[in-house]
């Protein structure tokens, strides 16, 4: 099978959308790679500043691993459901099915954000504010940026649902869903980095 671009390929049956997708998804993938550098440097900043506690609270006092575990499972599951939404689109299983999977992904994304916000609030209540130390500044520069990406993706998903309501699954919504799927999976990959470097690395 010829893969014309990263992420799910629509295949010949989708004709013009498949053609549009080649450059649109490739362009979006290039953007993801640029974003990967952005995150990579924030990871490096975190590693450099991680030891600078400045007398403030450290990872052991602040990080709550059960909550991080739940967030991880939420994100991973949402990646699966976002993938199933794309499959439903590719195999034309009907708009209802697509919308259903999208709504589930959206719900999981929002649940992740809620958990993350709760974590941040717990941290600040323990004195873990970004102003307290280099470690916390680097943490709050990196992790909420990922959260902001998830929030933006949720907003995009809402806009996409609006487009589907208005136009159904036309070429534009199809390629938009492919790009959205890539972003969703990419944010998962970033989360793996956060989980490993920030949380496990912080506690090690």
């Amino acid at each position: 099978m010829n893969r014309r671009h990263p992420g799910l390929n629509l295949g010949e049956a989708h004709d013009s959308a498949n053609d549009d997708a080649e450059k649109e998804v490739f362009g979006f993938w290039v953007f993801m790679m640029s974003d990967a550098i952005l995150f990579g440097l924030l990871f490096a900043t975190y590693v450099v500043l991680q030891g600078n506690l400045n007398g403030g609270p450290g990872p052991a006092e602040l990080f709550e691993m059960p909550s991080v575990l739940i967030q991880t499972v939420l994100l991973l599951t949402s990646s699966l459901t976002a993938g199933l939404a794309q499959l439903a689109m590719k195999h034309e299983l009907g708009t209802r099915r697509i919308v259903l999977w999208l709504l589930i992904s959206l719900g999981l994304g929002l649940a992740f954000l809620t958990m993350e916000m709760r974590d941040f609030l717990t941290m600040t209540s323990k004195g873990g504010v970004p102003q307290a130390s280099g470690f916390l500044s680097a943490f709050f520069a990196l992790v909420p940026l990922h959260g902001l990406h998830v929030a933006a993706t949720c907003l995009w998903l809402l806009a996409l649902l609006g487009q589907i309501a208005r136009y159904g699954t036309d070429d534009a919504t199809k390629t938009a869903m492919l790009r959205l799927g890539i972003l969703w999976h990419f944010l998962d990959v970033v989360w793996i980095g956060i989980f490993t470097i920030v949380y496990v690395g912080g506690l090690a």
Binding site: T45, N54, Q131, G134, S137
Partner: peptide
Amino acid sequence: ALDRYLGFHIFTNDGGGN
């Protein structure tokens, strides 16, 4: 900007910045 607007300590010479 985070340093300047929100009082982060990434590049400051106090508070554990670098």
